[in-house]
Structure formats: C-alpha cells, structure tokens
Design a protein around this nucleic acid. Sequence first.
RNA 1: GGAGAGAUGGCCGAGUGGUCGAAGGCGCGCCCCUGCUAAGGGCGUAAGGGCCAAAAGCCCUUCGAGGGUUCGAAUCCCUCUCUCUCCGCCA
Length: 427
Amino acid sequence: MLDSKQLRTDTESVARNLARRGFVLDLAAFRALEERRKQAQVEADRVRAERNGNAKAVGMAKGKGEDASALLQRGEQLTAELERSEAALVTVQAESDEWLMGLPNLLHDSVPDGADETANVEVRRHGTPRSFDFTPLDHIDIGQKLAGLDFDAAARISGARFSVLRGSLARLHRALAQFMLDLHTSEHGYQEIYAPYLVSAAALTGTGQLPKFEQDLFAVRGERTLYLIPTAEVPVTNLVREQIVAAENLPMRYVAHTPCFRSEAGAAGKDTRGLIRQHQFEKVELVQLVKPADSYAALEALTSHAEEVLKRLELPFRTVALCAGDIGFGSAKTYDIEVWLPGQGKYREISSCSNCEGFQARRMQARWRNPETGKPEPLHTLNGSGVAVGRALVAVLENYQNADGSVNIPVALRPYMGGSDKLLPAI
RNA sequence: GGAGAGAUGGCCGAGUGGUCGAAGGCGCGCCCCUGCUAAGGGCGUAAGGGCCAAAAGCCCUUCGAGGGUUCGAAUCCCUCUCUCUCCGCCA
C-alpha cells in the first residue's frame, strides 16, 4: 500500500512513477473518489459528534432529575441520520480501500526503464560456464540416469507439476537446504524460523499477494479458509504485523526453509518439463526488517548473501536489476540472481531479492518507533530467496555432470552427503 | 471431540448502561528536593483517521473481531476468533 498522504498531496509524481511500470493512474477518478470519501467522512464524524454530545446531555439531565424527552427524541433522529451517513462512508471507504490495495509500489529511482525482462540490466557476473567435451544433458535426463527423479510417479499421485525425488538425489536436495540454512545462520547473522505453511487471508494481504493475486494461490477451504504459502516471505514478514518494534531491535534478519505452493495459473505451457516450475517446491528464504534509512544497504547485503550460496557451490551466475516493467507488485527495487544451466544453455532465475520499503509494512501495520520523532513509523521489509532449493538442485546436476552419467558433489555439500563426492548412475 | 474460565493501554489490573480512552500500580520520560550506592515529590506517558497549507487546535474511531438492543455500550444479547484449565484422542 502506498502512503495515502503522499498519494493525496503528491498525486502527480506518484502517477509519473507508476507510469514507469506501465500502470495508468486515473488522476481524475482518484480525485473524485477522494473528494467523495472526504465528504462522507466529515459528515459522518459531524453527526456522530452531535449524537455523542446529545447522549451525554441525556445522562446529565437524568442525573439532575430533569425531563429529557426532547433530548431523547433528538437522539432518535440523530441515530437514524448517523446510520445513513455511516452507510455512505462504509461504501465509499470500501471503494477507496479496494482501489488503494490494487496500486503497486513506487519504484526506486535506480530502477532501470523498460517494459519487460529484455530490458533488465546485468549488474555483475560471477564464474565462467564450464565447457563440456560432451553434450551436456538437462537435469531430467541426468535424474533419470541416477534413478532419482520420478515425474511419472508424481503424476500418478498428484498430477502435473509435481515431482518425486529418490535416494541420493533426495538427500542432495536436503543437503542443499541444510547447507544454505547453516550458511545464513552461522555466517550472515540470520535467525532461523519455523513458521506456518497455512496462512490467513490477512497475512497474504499484508505481504501483497491478496487481494490481487488470489488465482496464484492454493486455498484450503474448511471451516475457515486458509492458503498454502507461496513463499516463506508471507509468514516470516508477517512476524512483525501489528507490532511497534523498538529501534534497538532493528535490523531483524530471519531465514526459513519451507515448502512453497503455487498454482502457476497463467504459466500453462511454460517449463512444463522438469523441476523448474512446480506446484510445490522448497525454498530457503531471507527476510530483513530494517530502519527505512538502511533498507538499500540491506538490499545489497541480502543479495550478496544469496549470491554467496552460489559462490560456495561454485555455480556460475549473474545478477540483474529488474527493469520498471518487470518488477513485482510490492517491490520498489529487485535484483534477480540467475544461475547458469548447461542443459538449457542459459541463465535462469534462482533468486529474487526485493526491497519493499514501507509497502508491506503499511499493509501489515508493522512499525518501529523512530527515536528522532518518538512516533511509530512504517519499517522497511526486504525478502529474497537464498536460494530456491529445487532450482539449485537442477543447477548442481547440470553443472556437475560427467560423461558417464555420474554427478560430482560440490565440495561445500560433501559434509551433508556423508562425505561422498559423487552420485553414481544406476545403470 | 466434551466441560469450564478468560480476552481492557508497554505490562499488571479495576471498572456490569451515562461527562470512561478508561481508577490504581509497575515500567518509561522530564523536572524538583535530597545527596550517594537509597528514598521522596511534581508533571507527562496508546494507536489509527479527519478538518487545516502547516503548526496549534478541534473532531472521530479503537476496551479480541463482527453484528444487535439503546438517546447512550468496556459494561446487556448473538456469532466468531484466540488464550488458559480439566477429560478424551493423537504425531
């Protein structure tokens, strides 16, 4: 949610900013709506104040034993009047809220222009893609040779976009998650969090997935509706919802390893084969809650923490700054980290690190007490994958494959693999 | 699943229809007195929103949430959520 004060007082520049995303802010409609809201609220407040004063007068009159019948009659009128003006306010307020909740975040000045991913800007590159003396396979074929990747079974159990991992491949998958968690907790200063995988609509509204993107989520409908988390960002960021955090407790750095569930509505036909795009996948997620003045330094740090995972795994990657048209709804600035996949011959997203500034905080009412003003102010929230576990598994398989179908285990993962250095093909 | 008890400000806790956003205490902040490893006194101390160019000021909302009764609800009624205790079941 945008700062409504800024939206009202600085409408033109807000509109200019959103236009960079290709989002058209209808200024005339906004001003008309705002005018109606203002009038309705002033009117409702006025009537309510009069009703309260009248009720108080009744109490005083009765206390003195005076006749209050005229006041009681006036009270009835006022209550009826209040009912009408409150109904009008609720209607226009709902309209205004819905509209406000549908506005994306403002972009940071440093975000490059552009309409889609072709305009994203590479900011750095690390490692060199290995040259193969044989034609590298993709992870699906490698997984098949290892007898560790079973999409047929998954399809029988759950349908498309699910996977079954077996044996050493399942273990490697687990090793990746363990390695990432250990790195972030012991070297990067994050506290490990275990959090719910089913969350309320309110939590999802806080981080921005609702109300606009419900079609991307899996809902579990029972006595009350809960949603499967699409990312640990949702429960972990919501740790501070409706809180006022003391300045000395910032920054907060959290890491969580969770499954993520996405309906992938609208992705039909995209990455249909393999582990790249699944309804269920694992992710190690980094979340930081910081003072506003620190959030861009924190974004750089958080991104470097995600990059460190790939450096330790000795996987080639590049980091790109997303352009205006490609940035997510709630983010002010995002870096994507893309890992090299020999099977596809290109870099693919493995992490996305965003500074949401106060956008989520305002929705969640997550605040910190600014010692300079003594007032609660929205804190800044950041999140980033550190990194997607399934995609990391793909990257390891494809980058570490050998001609004989075996796969070397990255040195960093060997302690988590019982010391072994190689996955051997089944055949 | 069965039975019961609760939900009030940063915390504890009073308040069962009327100047209650809410006594008292703790904590915290400022000041005074005193003077040294303490004690006493005074004042202040929630959040959200609106009017206003802004400040000041004024107004509205909020006592778990939502509805209802009433001129008036923290207080009465209904529904829901959450917490706690006991029993049962259970990874």
